[in-house]
Nucleic acid binder design. Structure first.
Lengths: 339, 339
DNA sequence: TTGAAAGCGCTAACAC
DNA sequence: GTGTTAGCGCTTTCAA
């Protein structure tokens, strides 16, 4: 278990000061006007000794850890793990490494993660904020910590954010169902004030309104994050069996959609004949459902790339803490939406 | 943008040395015999100033960063992101945070990630090794870095590892098909020497042999990690259409399985009548396939928990670098395997 | 019971 | 061109 070699080891081996070694190994020999042969010698010894810089020490000194913190709702959700993958790649391209954590949509977890990451001196944060995290975010702003919100924004707060055009996506999705002849279109969404959900709901409502469909309140079902499956079963029983009045549904996320499809499958509802379906997000499941599911495809690559880009801009420039990127969302039409 | 408060700030505010503050805030007032009222005062001021320790500085000094590095093949693969979630939780329970990276089954990426993480002074690594990474792993051992291999081991190398009982799982899966009357059972596996795949192949072969089924060589298809879909289409065309001789398949991973199911769906093969299927791993897709897929369920919780446990043991004790945990795998029987 | 100070590995201002 | 040195924030030994 040989100790790691430090600048000092190289310096003493070559017979120079650590300063010179530092300059050379950081490519600053020009600025520091280090002799050419000296530089060569230092590099040679560094290689011989297989020198690896201690990034912790570097970070302490420079105040830059070249580390980003990624806080998602749940890394095991394919939506977030796909983003994580893209973020990882973009970060690496820029010399950054990524710490991750899952908030589980919980305020306390979110706070702890932010805190932990800040204590580890991350250079910036990519956050999918949870409901009620307004204070936490405000606090970051006050402290001047670079961050970017992803997937969702917070009401009444100007921050860096990268989101999709949820309003229009939901509007178009609902409209598609309307155009295809469905009359009573429900939506199942999460019960949260987070903007992504609010915008999806608004887009949905707007489309109904434009088509002069009433009873919107009854058609919009809100479910909590916990005990999702039970709530969805309940909701679908009501919508499809008991009150037998709806003929289409918009699912506001992939998690809602997948749970719902299980129930619909089980109830042997005919899609799209008896029930039209459009869902947000993507899933392999959508391909395998007996009626391939029409969905709103988020451009994950664009979201992840932009999140990193916006964050790095903020890291490199205090002032750039207010960039809002809205990515258009496509709708992929397949069988489940009818016609 | 108020600067972070340091021990020094508290010290000067209280009028004591940083040493005292450090003791108190680390709960070492007993050992250091700090006065009770002094301790209270320090704690009070720390709270007032909202002191947050700089973990980078702590890490530099102590040599312990309380950070783990997680290297998986691909974080966007649900198998690995599920593990990541569990590892994250276990790590947090023990005061650790997790850096992650995806190797993409590439040797160079793997090397870079290990290097990057070591330079960041992680206390230990959880690695799903890629093919040919023997040297990299050996190097870690030589340096005395705590690590644990997960999901796969390396041939002829004693290390910490947490794997499932792939041999018996594959044996049982194949046997199930045999018992259910299938005669020509193929396997599609990855073309790699990594032990998890080798063991799955051995278990499969053994079951065939025990049942006196010949032609094993022809029935075992190996695919590369790249251009998976094309290879699988090709393979299935051969197995199912051209040579029309097989009546069952064992899929060696979820990724192979999902791609294959798409093709099988498309070819309108009747499962389980014309083709029996068993797959390794889990997927939502298995529930939605028209014939729910029988699968070998890995106990993700056990794998993740044990990986962290074994790693932490090694971190706390140099000698414990040789723990091998084999987790039994259950088989979840549904329709696709027949009878 | 408390303080002074060294030092973890590195950078960079400054001196020579 | 090259070396000295202070210091990033923290822990811990030793002295008082």
């Amino acid at each position: 278990m040989n100790k790691r070699v430090s600048l000092k080891d190289i310096a003493s081996r070559v017979g120079v000061s650590t300063a010179l070694v530092s300059y050379v190994l950081n490519g600053k020999e020009k600025e520091a006007r280090v002799g050419l042969e000296m530089a060569g010698k230092i590099r040679k010894v560094a290689k011989e000794l297989n020198y690896q810089p201690n990034l912790i020490a570097k970070g302490l000194k420079s105040g830059q850890t070249k580390t980003l913190g990624l806080i998602v709702a749940d890394i095991s959700n394919p939506f977030f793990s796909s983003l994580a993958r893209i973020i990882e790649i973009e970060a690496k391209k820029n010399g950054y490494t990524v710490l991750f954590g899952s908030s589980d949509e919980d305020l306390e977890n979110s706070k702890n993660l932010i805190n932990t990451f800040l204590n580890r001196q991350v250079d910036g944060l990519i956050i999918t904020p949870v409901e009620g995290s307004d204070e936490q975010i405000k606090d970051l702003q006050k402290k001047g910590i670079p961050f970017v919100l992803m997937d969702r924004g917070l009401e009444k707060r100007k921050t860096n954010k990268v989101i999709i055009d949820n309003y229009n996506a939901a509007f178009n999705a609902t409209n598609l169902l309307i155009k295809n002849g469905y009359k009573k279109i429900a939506m199942i969404a999460y019960d949260t004030r987070l903007t992504h959900m609010q915008h999806r709901i608004e887009g949905y409502k707007k489309a109904l309104k434009a088509a002069k469909i009433k009873d919107v309140a009854e058609l919009l079902i809100k479910v909590k994050f916990v005990a999702l499956q039970e709530q969805i079963e309940q909701a679908l029983q009501n919508l499809l069996i008991k009150n037998k009045k709806i003929d289409a549904i918009v699912f506001a996320t992939n998690s809602i959609s997948i749970q719902s499809l299980k129930v619909i499958h089980h109830l042997k509802i005919k899609v799209p004949q008896e029930l039209g379906i459009v869902s947000f997000d993507e899933s392999e499941v959508f391909d395998f459902f007996y009626s391939p599911v029409t969905y709103i495809k988020q451009d994950m690559q664009a979201i992840g790339e932009n999140a990193v880009k916006v964050l790095l801009q903020n890291i490199n420039d205090d002032k750039k803490n207010n960039t809002e990127i809205v990515i258009p969302a496509a709708i992929v039409i397949r069988e489940s939406s009818g016609k």
